[in-house]
């Protein structure tokens, strides 16, 4: 039955993807990409990948739409139709179809979903499932794999997020003075939703609950779906909601920019620092077992610290990018 749902939802996904490509109205494309992300999350969910679905929920539903709209505020409403020969348009189509055809051809060799004899279930996965209770002693194997067994990969991902933040900032500009803005009313007061009572009351009431949920996802990641990435995105979404309601200036007063810069760097530093401490205590890099007397307690401590580092960096980067866009739009 899950397969039927999956096929139906994937068909909808294709329809939405085609609609995104064909739409020349950029706002419509942003709205459709919101639906695309929701559909994607449902598909992840049906495949039992709850951690990934939660990431898609936090990033896709919360932050991506906001960032897309901030970018849209800096550009035109409609996609520019580029004048070019018919050959220029046929070439990408042919390339896309050839690649797609190859990929579909490759899927014929794939094992059926859930086949216990598939290579993916024969390789390292059984070892992880078997040894997580003994070595790490937490129920959520995904967190154990991400944080401990494959800690290197996660460290790399954190630095990817860190680098992406630096990249966006170097394009949008870290310090934009607002001298050019002659009409102050555009910026601070009227751009926000401060004068609309209902969104403000309802939205402000939700901010603490979203933050609470972020903390739950952060510190409960060893027992249920979630972890640093998801929690960082959810916490950033809460602050973004506050900034949307109260205006960017008050959002920046709540979480000042110097703090954000420290957060971006210190989260990644904390992750790497835990690894170095492990080395100093006589273990290998990111081997948390040496952090406490009992190896599994050391693993718990290490996972807690690195997930905290991940969460701090992710929320710092997302908020910095959001503020960079908002400041740019207010010129």
């Amino acid at each position: 039955m899950t397969l039927v749902f999956g096929v139906f939802l994937l068909t909808l996904l294709v329809i939405v993807a085609v609609a995104i490509v064909r739409s020349t109205n950029l706002f419509a494309a942003v709205m459709l990409s919101g639906i695309f992300s929701l559909l994607m999350a449902v598909n992840f969910f049906l495949l039992d990948a709850a951690d990934v679905a939660l990431t898609e929920a936090a990033v896709g539903a919360g932050v991506a739409t906001v960032l897309f709209l901030s970018a849209l505020a800096l550009t035109a409403e409609h996609e520019q139709v580029r004048p070019g020969g018919a050959a220029l348009q046929w070439l990408p189509l042919v390339v896309a179809f050839a690649t797609g055809g190859l990929l579909i051809y490759a899927t014929f060799q794939n094992p059926v979903i859930g086949d216990p004899n598939a290579p993916v279930h024969q390789h390292v996965a059984p070892w992880y499932l078997e040894n997580t209770p003994e070595l790490i002693d937490i129920p959520n194997v995904v967190t154990a794999v991400l944080g401990s067994f494959r800690g290197f990969d996660t460290l790399g991902e954190v630095f990817v997020v860190f680098t992406a933040g630096i990249g966006v900032l170097s394009i949008l500009g870290l310090r934009h003075t607002l001298v050019e803005m002659t009409s102050a009313e555009i910026d601070a007061r009227q751009r926000s939703l401060r004068h609309h009572l209902i969104p403000r009351v309802v939205g402000r009431g939700m901010v603490p609950f979203i933050l609470l949920f972020a903390l739950y996802v952060q510190f409960h990641g060893e027992y249920s779906p979630g972890g640093g990435f998801q929690a960082g995105a959810i916490a950033a979404a809460a602050i973004i909601l506050y900034s949307l309601l109260e205006g960017d200036d008050r959002g920046r007063a709540l979480v000042p920019e110097w703090l954000l810069q420290i957060m971006v760097a210190s989260g990644a530093l904390l992750f790497g620092g835990v690894g170095v401490v492990c080395m100093l205590l006589g273990g290998s890099f990111l081997d948390y077992s040496v952090l406490a007397e009992v190896p599994s307690e050391g693993q718990h401590l290490g996972l807690l610290l690195i997930e905290l580092g991940v969460g701090i960096t992710v929320s710092g980067v997302l908020l910095t990018v959001f503020h960079a866009f908002a400041r740019r739009a207010s010129r």
């Binding site: 539903a61 919360g62 739409t65 901030s70 939703l193 979203i210």
Partner: peptide
């Protein structure tokens, strides 16, 4: 948990549109 996360976060997109 996931449904809860969506229920909380979904409204942000609409605020951004406004």
């Amino acid at each position: 948990d996931l449904a809860l996360a969506y229920a909380l976060i979904n409204s942000i997109g609409v605020m951004a549109v406004l």
